[in-house]
Design a protein around this nucleic acid. Structure first.
Lengths: 347, 347
DNA sequence: CTGTTAGCGCCTTCAG
DNA sequence: CTGAAGGCGCTAACAG
């Protein structure tokens, strides 16, 4: 069932059918013909072929979306936001995963480009991907979302992780804590680096040094939180920090369970701040204080920037930066006692 | 940069270039030519146009995926599984949301079909969508996933929600509970109906009737859990059930908070079983006993069935059904006292 | 082994 | 207002 079929069934030309069926062109066709064409199309169950249309027009109505890992629940709202912003234009995201692997990102990008996506939104970049992304950006609009790239000419839609890190620090400092530690996410991923910097800086402003762990989480998951918490106890059990900033909620939960195993109660013995404000995190024990990540907004904005870039490739890349907010709950509390000062803790 | 450009730069025909670049056809071309073509392609930065290829071949290498709501974290693993199963074939999912709206599903389906997806996986069906889905299935492979359709000829890849409901019931019965209630999800969505039936039946086997609420949740979200819990207290406060089966974890958490507001402690006063075993649900207070939903497996299997159907449209629709497992935690405990028997509870 | 030819289905000139 | 022609980039069939 093609335009031609309808045309011949009506004794008109395919061009006429094409025009009659396109709302923007129907005015070029006599009303009677438009009606007859529409009736025939409906009756024959005609459905336009967007693949053929895409080839002819040179635009596909798709936006490629690169994510590190779809199984990470944190990314779902971002994709939701992207899909929302594209839907009114009848455009669809094409989502591809990289397994958080820098070289897979390259082939994913290539794959999307070979499908002639109208734009790419990369929500899973590592620093080492900058060059390929910028290279792609020269021929197709590319938006960097979620995980920022420093010194890049590309449009970036981010959450202000640096301010978020600082916010976590100031909250803990305001509660009277002076010995703080960080459980860091990967150090080649923009948002974790920013969280780290923000946290550091805010502490430095108060003249405090943050306890330094010799490792960062390779992936920002629960197991990394457990591992780093153990490391913290191993290395600093004799002078444990009274407050910990985990780079995301999963890591915070991992740390929480390890601390608990070691007889440390949160928040009495140790305060914890997480990141993302994940769906059920307000009902864990204790309810986790967490920096709110506005995933839907970031996604929606990234989609809008992509659309904008598709319409008019800008010299000066537009972008957006969303401010953090803090969900204050129970896992971070005022410093009351300091059970570890000078004491050696069994590991 | 097209095949023709490479061809003319090398003084050969576009067909030769096409063949040389296709791993399955390169053997038809002399080695020397293959090498020269590949070199030229790489040097000129050639990237095949899958849109043109799709038009010519009649297959797009895409699978349409219909979901109710991307923001529901429960669906992320399913999409992950689908993407995983398609990736080795260089195929990509095209995900579209319906906002859990039956009529939007119809236009979403139409949209996907106009993009000539090679198959459709519908993970967001309501009963009323059966006819349009089956109609679509006559021309394109359609797989029903997650939310089943009764009496349908379509391939279905599901989790055994009926057995899951029964499992929840038996667990509670085994703990000695005799007054049970359900907080139900939408009654025109397959998995919730199955959970309901399974729960009912298992209770009936023990000769027990389940307390009936005059409403079900319109959407399976936290607010519905809160609402139904309030309704339960309003209507049955004088003889509250000692155990509740919430149709998913979000509803369970909503109910939990309402019970708590009313002075009911879980599990001492009331036991709760949820569904899905959501990511952080093991660390809420109390850790939630929950039926495990194998989202990744369901997704992966749905993808595989779709691929199979693409290869050979089957008479007898293949399908799969995954068994439930129970994650036993603290939110459901043995019946010890029964504080509500005969007592009127303030609402 | 390579070239020629002929479209896939659509949309956009350009004529009438 | 409508028709005819051409081609987007690719690949399959057929020759040679």
């Amino acid at each position: 069932m093609t335009l031609k079929d309808i045309a011949s069934s009506l004794g008109v030309n395919a061009s006429t059918v094409s025009r009659a069926l396109d709302p923007h062109k129907a005015h070029l066709v006599s009303e009677g013909t438009v009606d007859r064409v529409r009736a025939a199309a409906k009756q024959l169950g005609y459905r336009g072929d967007r693949v053929a249309g895409a080839l002819r027009r040179g635009v596909t109505g798709t936006v490629g979306v690169i994510v590190a890992d779809l199984a990470n629940p944190f990314i779902a709202p971002v994709i939701h936001g992207i899909a929302q912003s594209l839907a009114p234009r009848q455009m669809l995201p094409m989502v591809i995963e990289t397994n958080d692997n820098a070289s897979e990102l390259e082939s994913s990008l290539d794959h999307l480009l070979s499908r002639r996506v109208d734009a790419v939104i990369c929500a899973g970049a590592r620093f080492s991907n900058r060059d390929v992304l910028e290279e792609a950006g020269r021929s197709t609009p590319v938006v960097i979302a979620v995980r920022g790239l420093s010194n890049s000419v590309l449009a970036q839609v981010l959450h202000d992780d640096r301010a978020g890190g600082a916010m976590a620090a100031r909250h803990l400092l305001g509660l009277g804590h002076t010995r703080l530690a960080e459980l860091r996410g990967p150090d080649d991923v923009g948002n974790f680096v920013s969280r780290h910097l923000g946290f550091r800086e805010a502490c430095a402003e108060e003249g405090l040094a943050v306890i330094d762990l010799p490792e960062v989480g390779e992936r920002p998951i629960r197991e990394a939180g457990e591992h780093l918490a153990r490391l913290l106890i191993d290395l600093h059990g004799d002078a444990m920090p009274t407050a910990v900033f985990a780079h995301n909620d999963l890591m915070a939960l991992g740390a929480l369970s390890v601390f608990r195993q070691h007889g440390l109660t949160c928040p009495t013995d140790i305060s914890i701040v997480g990141y993302n404000d994940s769906p059920t995190i307000d009902q864990v024990d204790p309810p986790l204080t967490s920096v709110i990540y506005p995933g839907i907004k970031v996604g929606r904005s990234a989609g809008e920037v992509a659309l904008q870039l598709i319409n008019e490739p800008a010299e000066h890349a537009p972008g957006a930066m969303f401010p953090p907010r803090l969900a204050v709950r129970k896992s971070a509390a005022p410093l009351v006692n300091d059970p570890f000062l000078g004491r050696t803790h069994a590991t």
